[in-house]
């Protein structure tokens, strides 16, 4: 399927272009609108966890920015990607092309969004945070791993949604809860030591902890956990791709 994709990069580019144009065409400040969601989250959580419940995390809003941006990438890609194939039913039904391109384009658009947001975060970190450090060398790896995970899950979700049309309710609920078992609004220190092992079995937890580690504290993420997570992500993505392959031809018929 990777070969397929490279072969079809024109198609992927065309869908990416469509994604960007649709997202930003009507609004001049398009990119800033997509920042609004994470910023609103930062605001609300800062209010709750520094004014109401006084959680002991230094520079809480900055910490939140570092964790919510990767979370938003994950969340947006999955929720938009879930419905992407069904929304493009007319293409899938009337032309023969690799359907995987559709959810991948959604992931691509959200990835670029995420990268732009990170770019905008950099000056904020330099002024208010710890600035750029050597640990940042791990950042591309984290981004790559996260993209792989997101791509695999989105691909599978998009295909499943064709067959099971109530998946969106399940997914929205699941994501809402999943948000709380990654270290996004709290740091890993808050997880009791004896539970930490199980906690880190969740690849996204490791990744998000990695982001806050690098961006906030300038520490490299734990390499042992990172390697374990890498293996997990490769397996998950591979599994998703296999399942997608099985469903691929039935999609056009069911849509």
């Amino acid at each position: 399927m990777i070969v397929d994709l490279i072969h079809n990069r024109q198609l992927l580019l065309a869908f990416l272009e469509r994604g960007f144009k649709t997202k930003y065409k009507n609004s001049y400040l398009g990119i800033f609108w997509s920042l609004l969601n994470p910023l609103a989250n930062v605001l609300i959580f800062t209010l709750v966890f520094t004014v109401f419940i006084k959680i002991n995390i230094k520079e809480y809003p900055l910490f939140l920015l570092c964790t919510i941006l990767p979370w938003t990438f994950f969340h947006a890609a999955l929720t938009n990607g879930l419905v992407s194939i069904v929304e493009d039913a007319h293409f899938v039904k009337n032309a023969a092309f690799p359907t995987a391109v559709i959810p991948f384009a959604v992931v691509g658009v959200n990835l670029v969004n995420f990268l732009l947001e990170l770019l905008m975060l950099m000056p904020v970190l330099i002024v208010w945070g710890n600035g750029i450090s050597t640990a940042w060398i791990f950042l591309p790896l984290l981004i790559f791993l996260q993209t792989l995970l997101v791509a695999g899950l989105t691909l599978l979700a998009a295909a499943l949604f064709v067959f099971l049309r109530d998946l969106n309710f399940i997914m929205h609920l699941g994501l809402r809860l999943f948000f709380y078992i990654v270290p996004a609004v709290y740091t890993i220190d808050f997880v009791p030591k004896h539970l930490r092992f199980f906690y880190f079995l969740n690849p996204l937890a490791v990744l998000i902890d990695g982001y806050s580690s690098i961006l906030m504290h300038g520490h490299a993420p734990s390499l042992s956990w990172l390697s374990f997570t890498t293996v997990e992500i490769v397996l998950i993505t591979y599994g998703c791709a296999l399942l997608f392959k099985k469903m691929r031809f039935s999609i056009a018929e069911r849509i």
Binding site: L11, A14, F15, R18, N26, K93, N94, A96, F97
Partner: peptide, 27 residues
């Protein structure tokens, strides 16, 4: 193939932009 072809047109895009998209879909 020409089956229900106009169904996938994106209304916000121009005719030209839609042609580029369709071109890509057909390789």
């Amino acid at each position: 193939v020409s089956l229900e072809l106009g169904a996938g047109f994106i209304l916000e895009f121009t005719g030209r932009e839609n042609l580029y998209l369709y071109g890509a879909i057909f390789g």
